[in-house]
Design a protein around this nucleic acid. Structure first.
Length: 407
DNA sequence: TCTGGGGTCCTAGGACCC
DNA sequence: TCTGGGGTCCTAGGACCC
């Protein structure tokens, strides 16, 4: 039987902001992107008391809490704090899986004796994070990741919940299904429709019907309802190669002018290309995503003849896809993604023209790494400089793709 | 002043080959 | 002189996570 711990920072972005600016402490604040059309990324507990939640528009948030203070997300600060926290976990086990910027799983099966039990490890982690960084976390402990995550959800903020193996069947019997990681709005609604509200009910529902309706997900649902999860805690150095790299952006104003759209695509292609080059991957498939004014969203992908990671090549591929689409409605979001990736060692091209382009890109990346994104860029990007806000996504992982270089 | 951005995985249909 | 199948790859969309 394993001992898995899930650590979840409480209102992470908001807590970090309140810690770094004492004037914000004890007050309802919310972290958002810098753009007009951005949403609430995280609300402080003071703001949550008013009903302010992640995903709300600023407008909706102010309706619920007029005295709300909005703070623009500070990506660098959060990654810095996150990296410190994740490093601290390493003191207790090398088996740390970073699940997101503010969450991690720790396999403590081999560390319990050394540190005197799981309660003590939880106490040490909590107090060290609190002392060093001034923020709190909720911790869940259970025999597997699914249950550890469920446990950490039980008490917030600053909670510690331990699910002992013998208590689990009783705990699950009346646990609402949507508390399980993997059952979202859609699945939850569908299961409710057939009268399944608790894990107990789900576990007794005929597996054959679940399979018929959900395929492999049906099997997964059944075992989840029983609290079964055999997935291992995978540290970054053992995690698999990244599958895709992409960026998307909601525009400040909807656009229907092809030239203006292309200018944004160039910016996105540059961001995608640069990240791919930094990770030393190239990809065979380029995907363009468009969201129209009415929110219908389409994606079109195209396999390329060769693996590529040059910004210009990605841009060309994206505009080729754009040419196939009609722009009968203004566009509110654009996205570019590179997938079917493979690890690619840097190799100087053979032909002079390509070689020149390669060296140019390398030099440009070097300058941009050193002096900031878009220090050197295409002339057509000039008028947009600074427009691309770099808001960190909560799904960001500190280790990123570090392991790729090892392969 | 309606509705972000980074990913992964699964499904279903069609093309194509044998 | 007809409607077989299996396998694989490609594509689009949607559900889920944070």
């Amino acid at each position: 039987m394993k001992t898995i711990m899930h650590v979840d920072m409480n209102a992470f972005f908001a807590a970090v902001e309140q810690q770094s600016n004492p004037a914000l402490r004890g007050r309802p604040i919310a972290v958002t992107g810098s753009e007009k059309r951005s949403i609430i990324l995280t609300a402080s507990y003071e703001a949550r008391a008013f009903g302010v939640k992640t995903g709300m528009t600023r407008f909706a948030a102010f309706q619920r809490c007029p005295q709300l203070t909005l703070v623009s997300a500070n990506n660098r600060l959060y990654t810095h704090v996150s990296t410190e926290i994740m490093a601290l976990f390493q003191d207790y086990t090398p088996l740390v899986e970073v699940f997101s910027v503010d969450e991690a799983f720790l396999d403590l099966s081999g560390s319990l004796k050394l540190f005197g039990g799981v309660e003590r490890i939880a106490y040490l982690i909590k107090s060290r994070i609190k002392t060093r960084l001034g923020i709190t976390c909720s911790i869940g402990v259970a025999p597997n990741k699914l249950l550890a995550k469920l446990a950490s959800e039980q008490r917030k903020p600053d909670g510690l919940t331990i699910f002992r193996p013998e208590e689990i069947p009783a705990l699950l019997e009346n646990m609402p299904i949507q508390e399980l990681c993997g059952i979202g709005r859609q699945l939850g609604r569908q299961l409710h429709e057939v009268g399944i509200f608790t894990c107990g009910q789900l576990s007794r529902f005929p597996l054959t019907i679940l399979r018929k309706k959900y395929g492999v997900i049906g099997d997964k649902l059944h075992s989840m309802a029983l609290g079964i999860d055999s997935s291992p805690v995978v540290p970054a150095e053992e995690s698999s190669l990244v599958k895709s790299v992409g960026h998307s952006r909601t525009l400040r104003h909807d656009l229907d002018d092809r030239q203006a759209i292309c200018a944004f695509l160039l910016q996105l292609a540059e961001m995608v290309g640069r990240r791919a080059r930094r990770y030393q991957v190239s990809g065979k498939v380029v995907t363009l995503t468009l969201r129209y004014t009415d929110f219908t969203t389409i994606s079109r992908q195209q396999a390329q003849e060769d693996y590529l990671n040059g910004s210009e090549e990605i841009y060309q591929a994206a505009t080729q896809i754009l040419d196939r689409l009609s722009l009968d409605q203004p566009v509110r979001l654009l996205g570019v993604r590179l997938s079917s990736l493979r690890f690619k060692t840097a190799q100087l091209p053979l032909f002079p023209a390509e070689r020149r382009q390669y060296l140019l890109t390398e030099a440009r990346d070097h300058v941009n790494d050193r002096y900031g994104d878009f220090t050197i860029m295409s002339a057509s990007l000039l008028e947009q400089k600074g427009k691309g806000s770099h808001v960190i996504s909560p799904a960001w992982r500190p280790q990123g793709l570090r392991n790729i270089a090892v392969r």
